[in-house]
Amino acid sequence: MKHITLFISLFFLWMLLTFSLNAYNIIVGLFTALIVTLLFGHRFLQDWKKFYNPLRYIWGLIYVVVLIWDCIKANFDVAYRVLSPKMPIKPGIVKVKSSLKTDIAKVFLANSITMTPGTITVDIIDDYFYVHWIYVSSNDPAVYTEKIIGRFEKLLKKVFE
């Protein structure tokens, strides 16, 4: 079942990517999806039942909207720091503890941190995220943990866990 889920999603992606109902395209797509499924199927989501829960998709959509909004904010933030003559930066690497457990949720959290204003993930070791921050605005771990991952952590827990 896990393999079938992966196969169908890969084939769907292939059809979108080529976007033509040519017999040649379909056959190549089926073969490619089959090979990838056989090679990497065991690495796909451990708990594939979560894939068919519609509630998770709704939370995923909310997460995407929040992420896009943060991306736009991040761009204006970086543009301001780059263009202002004094260049207001105060960089540093801080350690942030997250309560997410599954690997895929951690990957998404790391990517979200990279796209949010002024922060970029350096490394993940167990539950700790090491984050490079362009303007370290507080020295209290509780405050900056909330500031960096607070809003994403809650949403990702609903989407992936």
Binding site: K90, G92, I93, V94, K95, D123, Y130, N139
Partner: peptide, 9 residues
């Protein structure tokens, strides 16, 4: 850089 204030890594 020299401006760095903290390095937990």
């Amino acid at each position: 850089t020299d401006k760095t204030v903290i390095d937990d890594y």
